[in-house]
Nucleic acid binder design. Structure first.
Lengths: 368, 368
DNA sequence: ACCGGCAATGCAACCGGTTGCATTAATTTC
DNA sequence: GAAATTAATGCAACCGGTTGCATTGCCGGT
């Protein structure tokens, strides 16, 4: 039978209380007594029962990592996977554990059962954050939101530098590659991330005094999808404003390469040479992949005829043909950051809410 | 303040014991009393404290899912990600939770701290299973091994049908595409999975009376890598035997596409036309990708000059150019199966060890 | 009227720890 | 040398549940 604290205490000839304190290295216990207790503990290979400790201390040492079943076949796992890795690693460093919970976007209840008293804090890592947020707040559970920032006090937010990364792409295309007609293709702009990338696309044009790509053959799709427009307050928290749509971005419903191909190909075919863009900035690598296929099928070359840049730097993007120029995201670091912020929040629940930026950087490969 | 069981009991006018039983729907409690208690519970939004329950019942409802930080950039997360999803989904269905723990291959201790009493069972999902297995056995923790089967009583093993999948590839190449000179490229054969794929490659040759591809230009690499040879007992459990290496498989150290390219290209260049294979069976999609690149660079076409088939069916494989013929693995289902077997093992710890096969199937695309 | 049996409930111990406070032992102060 | 202070330990309550067993009340049988 596994030894219990009471066993250790008895054998070491002290009370349960003293044994407990000795193991916790409390200054109340005489050094010699500590040694004795520790020795007995080691000898009998005593391991405290974490659950009992948790109920006694009201601190489980478990963090909830809540994510959707990965929506996108290769993006989903490539992004949230490393993020989870990062969270696990950082959690372990601080003797915390990660419990993964599915967030059902339909059913916004996050695993009611377990969460109540058993979790010290929660990381919500999704791309379409539902709003069980209020639920967490009501229950006073420290919460970190990844990829989103809502005007809620006392939470922390982890966001990657979408805008900066996209600006770097544009700078590269314009300054280093001399492009002046750059098209933009994206999943629904109602996603905060994509919208920020789009804003960078717009601002770059302003910065360099270029006209925004406007192709009469493109009829603007459903820019916002079925989602509400990006929230003004959220954008302000991220240092941005809501803006009108300019030019003719190609909007896909979903971060899906074959849809991108199907959308881009007919445009290329229907467009006069003078209306063709010389570069296409895809809001995600996945869309970039579809875009490249479409260009090939139209009998054109990447990057000679049309350059393509993406965003995310999926692990496979370096193996594309041609290897993709893109913005390197760092989900692993986001996971670490999320845990760090969460632990701060747990340590000091009155801490005011903070936005933690995670850097992105341009990776130039062969597609531009 | 959150209501406790004692609060509910008091308000409903019963004892803690009765309240507890009422909530557990025990037949000992009168229907009317149950109703009253449940009503009060609902009214006050009572949620039992899972940790307290866990310590009282000695059953935490938490399963450990133990995996390496995903080794391979695109394979790792694409495979273990869905597996984790499957485990989570199945666990949730049975009101269990998944705690993910990193398995440090170097340091074989699996999160000593938490595991002791707090976890009902463990799933070990790695490709190079370390042997903290003994540790789990000593502690009587039910254990499920994924992708491996060791001759240990009272555990369960989840393995996908590597052999069958690989046979299907060979059948396709030989019967439907008429290939007679088929090369094989693989990561180290000391990995059980790859070895089984190789055995299928050999057996198919025997079945169809073909000569195994033997290219004088290929010098056999380090077939076993730094790992021990596949274990005889393990193989027997999986219905196979240790066999001699036949032909000249191309062996890479690592499941890495660029290494595959670097290995295949010089062989193609150095080989007379008559020695060229007409098809290459790559033991993984990742290697298939590198192989295809090498073929292109050698100025040949896929599949016209050389057909290529892979194994794994990564989400991205359908987006290769050309889309890859491969064997569809089902990590999601493996995750589900792992949880199912684990729960059986928890319910009946004396259950004898079982191997659970997860199907694979051929997906024919354009590369063959 | 008495007893046995059963359904419903409550008491109190238990799971395995932690911690406030009282108690004792050891040391200092006057 | 007694009183006051401090260091070390133990007692017992507590965290929030579950469960074995005793108790109560009600019923039918004789």
């Amino acid at each position: 039978m596994k030894p219990r604290l009471s066993d250790i205490a008895r054998i070491a000839g002290v009370s349960k209380a003293t044994a407990s304190r000795a193991l916790a290295n409390s200054p109340l216990v005489k050094e010699e007594t500590k040694r004795r207790v520790l020795e007995v503990a080691k000898q009998y290979n005593y391991q405290p029962n974490a659950l009992a400790q948790a109920v006694a201390t009201k601190r489980s040492g478990i963090l909830g990592f809540c994510m959707h079943k990965s929506q996108h076949p290769y993006f989903g796992h490539s992004f949230f996977g490393p993020m989870l890795d990062g969270a696990i690693e950082e959690a372990r460093r601080h003797n915390y554990h990660i419990l993964v919970a599915p967030a059902d976007p339909a059913n916004t209840t996050f695993d009611e059962h377990f969460i109540q008293d058993s979790i010290d804090g929660v990381i919500l890592a999704t791309f379409t954050p539902m709003e069980p947020i209020q639920e967490f707040r009501r229950r006073n559970i420290p919460l970190v939101l990844v990829n989103d920032a809502v005007p809620t006090p006392n939470n922390a937010f982890i966001v990657q530098d979408e805008y900066g990364g996209a600006r770097a792409v544009m700078r590269h295309l314009i300054e280093e590659r001399g492009h002046r007609k750059i098209a933009f293709i994206s999943d629904r702009l109602s996603h905060l991330s994509y919208y920020l990338r789009y804003l960078a696309y717009l601002d770059a044009h302003r910065e360099y005094g270029l006209e925004i790509y406007n192709n009469p053959k493109i009829k603007l799709g459903n820019v916002w999808g079925n989602f509400p427009r990006p929230d003004r307050q959220k954008l302000e928290m991220l240092g941005q404003k809501v803006r009108e749509i300019e030019g003719t971005p190609i909007i896909i419903e979903g971060n899906d390469s074959s849809q991108a191909r199907d959308a881009v190909y007919p445009i290329l075919m229907a467009t006069d040479d003078k209306d063709l863009p010389t570069a296409i900035f895809a809001a995600t690598d996945s869309l970039a992949l579809g875009t490249i296929e479409a260009i090939w099928e139209a009998g054109l070359e990447v990057p000679q005829d049309i350059a393509v840049a993406g965003f995310d730097d999926l692990p496979m993007s370096a193996a594309f043909t041609p290897p993709l120029t893109t913005v390197h995201a760092n989900p692993f670091e986001m996971g670490q950051a999320a845990v760090q912020e969460l632990l701060k929040l747990i340590a000091n629940p009155q801490r005011e809410s903070a936005i933690r930026w995670v850097d992105t950087h341009l990776v130039v490969r062969k597609s531009t």
